[in-house]
Amino acid sequence: MTPEVNGEEVFYFCLKGSTLLRKHLKDNNNVEGSETSSEVVSRVIPRGETIFECLTGLPLVKRSLSVGQDFSWQAAAHLPATAPQRQGPLYEFRTYRIRPDRTAAFLRLTNDKIHLRTAHSQLIGYWSVEYGGLNQVFHIWKYDSFSQRAAVRSALAQDPRWMSEYISQAIPMLTWQDNHVTTLLPWSRLRTPPLEGGAFELASFKMRLGGPPLWGRSLQHAMASHDAPGHAHLVAAFHSEIGHLDTVHALWWFESADKRRQVQGDAMAEVAVHVHTRDNKVMFACSFSPLK
């Protein structure tokens, strides 16, 4: 019986192709230091055999690449069906750092005037960061397209009440702003927490180059195993499209910060090989946040 071949492994070996093979052979004293990767491939791999077959001994029903062919191009034709969606809503993440002496005033002002902003586009959530970033707020805005966002920003700039009653007062309170654009991972949907209140965690993972075709299925399984009653509630999982590239953001909800500590597990342990760096922050929803 032909062994089952994992699509992520196929992608990994094909994408890294000759470089992996060259290292593998060099470690086993079967390559000269001056040889190029292409020369190694041509000399060592039997005609018609794939690099994946050469390294693992497993046959592939569909040959993804053979000697002399361009590795990454051929690999792209056989990616597993876990690529991010190129259609669907965009979610803009915005983070503001506030002057320490103006944090309370900024939150009061935003509470009073946020309706001027939500008249133009949909607010998903607005949080005050408690741990992992001092004097910060984090918010998510939903758009149907980049053109819709451009229209919204143009309308805001021409909205006299928004500019005079909010922007003119809020901007002097801020010391730093950041944004990037994300989309939901194909298997994720925005979910409302089971209860209002509680603590939210935004966990961010800088992933290995290759995107969801490389690590998507493993990531889905890891997060699903962590998402259970009495453990953690996955609100949504996002993948960056602009800014902070190759980054996955998981938005979790817990009954409290102490509950998070009690049930905390490493949801990413089984995909650790695909993760370069990690970061997180624990936040509490503002009173005017739709998600709370």
Results as ranks from 00 to 15, higher is better:
61 V>H: 08
47 R>L: 14
131 Y>R: 13
147 S>F: 09
66 S>Q: 13
80 P>R: 10
145 S>P: 05
204 S>W: 01
12 Y>M: 11
140 I>G: 00
280 N>M: 12
72 S>Y: 03
56 T>C: 08
163 M>A: 11
160 P>M: 10
99 R>S: 01
11 F>L: 13
150 A>E: 14
228 A>D: 07
95 T>F: 10
121 S>Y: 01
152 V>Q: 00
223 M>Y: 03
124 I>V: 15
108 R>G: 00
23 K>H: 05
173 M>G: 04
282 V>E: 01
232 A>G: 11
274 H>R: 07
259 K>L: 07
194 P>R: 10
109 L>P: 09
67 V>N: 13
278 R>I: 09
12 Y>W: 11
227 D>F: 00
210 G>E: 03
172 P>C: 10
87 Q>A: 12
61 V>E: 13
194 P>C: 05
26 K>N: 01
83 A>V: 13
178 D>N: 13
239 H>V: 12
217 R>I: 10
60 L>C: 08
22 R>F: 04
283 M>T: 05
135 N>G: 00
230 G>E: 04
91 Y>T: 04
175 T>N: 07
71 F>C: 09
193 P>H: 09
93 F>K: 05
48 G>Q: 09
4 E>S: 11
172 P>K: 09
205 F>K: 03
183 T>P: 01
76 A>I: 03
212 P>A: 05
97 R>V: 11
240 S>N: 11
17 G>P: 02
43 R>L: 10
200 F>A: 04
25 L>N: 05
253 W>M: 07
191 R>L: 10
243 G>V: 06
84 P>D: 02
65 L>T: 13
231 H>T: 11
118 T>W: 00
65 L>G: 04
23 K>S: 04
128 S>W: 02
169 Q>P: 01
290 P>Y: 08
75 A>L: 01
78 H>F: 15
115 H>Q: 14
57 G>A: 08
159 D>G: 06
191 R>H: 12
223 M>R: 06
283 M>R: 01
3 P>E: 10
82 T>G: 01
43 R>W: 03
124 I>C: 07
7 G>M: 06
277 T>N: 12
219 L>E: 01
39 E>M: 09
221 H>V: 14
178 D>Y: 12
157 A>T: 08
199 A>C: 14
121 S>C: 14
27 D>I: 05
36 T>H: 05
157 A>C: 05
240 S>I: 03
125 G>V: 09
